[in-house]
């Protein structure tokens, strides 16, 4: 092989390695950019979901009021009515589950239905689960429950499917 041919081969090899490195760099850059965007999207969803922790218990549909003045608590009788309106809220609330568990004065594993408000402790107030979800965000918070003659404490568990 002549010296010129060798030099051409050498140049081609160097160019090839350089292009491989460049392509690898671009792939990594694209991958990290995409990952960054996905994380930002998830952060935004998380932020939006966190605000629901304050807004859902204060929805007029379930919050309690005394002499038409809103009080910071959830009326357990309104929860059952809200449960029956699930379909009307699907556009607004999207894919998520909202469940309230009674914790005080006692924990009770009976599901609350119409006619069994006194002897139950789980209110499945909103249920809209997608067939498949990439991520599930879960938030929990204590809430004050109002039972006409007394106040209890419950825990609202919200699951958001993304």
């Amino acid at each position: 092989m002549k010296k010129g041919q060798l030099q051409i081969q050498e140049t081609i090899l160097v160019l090839f390695i350089f292009i491989v490195i460049l392509v690898l760099g671009m792939v990594f850059f694209y991958r990290f950019s995409l990952q960054g965007l996905e994380e930002n999207k998830l952060d935004n969803e998380r932020l939006k979901f966190n605000t629901m922790l304050s807004t859902v218990p204060e929805m007029a549909e379930i919050t309690c009021s005394i002499y038409s003045q809103e009080v910071n608590c959830i009326d357990v009788y309104k929860l059952l009515a809200f449960k029956n309106l699930n379909d009307k809220y699907k556009d607004r609330m999207g894919f998520m589950n909202i469940t309230i568990y009674s914790l005080y004065p006692e924990r009770n594993s009976n599901l609350c239905e119409l006619g069994s408000v006194r002897d139950c402790g789980i209110w499945n107030i909103y249920y809209n689960k997608p067939k498949e979800a990439k991520t599930t965000l879960v938030l929990r918070s204590p809430v004050s429950l109002y039972y006409i003659d007394k106040y209890g404490i419950g825990e609202i568990v919200m699951e958001r499917y993304l």
Partner: peptide
């Protein structure tokens, strides 16, 4: 937020 909600719930209890 959890701490605030817990406080509200606890203070309501009779």
């Amino acid at each position: 937020v959890q701490a605030y909600n817990l406080m509200n719930a606890v203070l309501n209890v009779y």
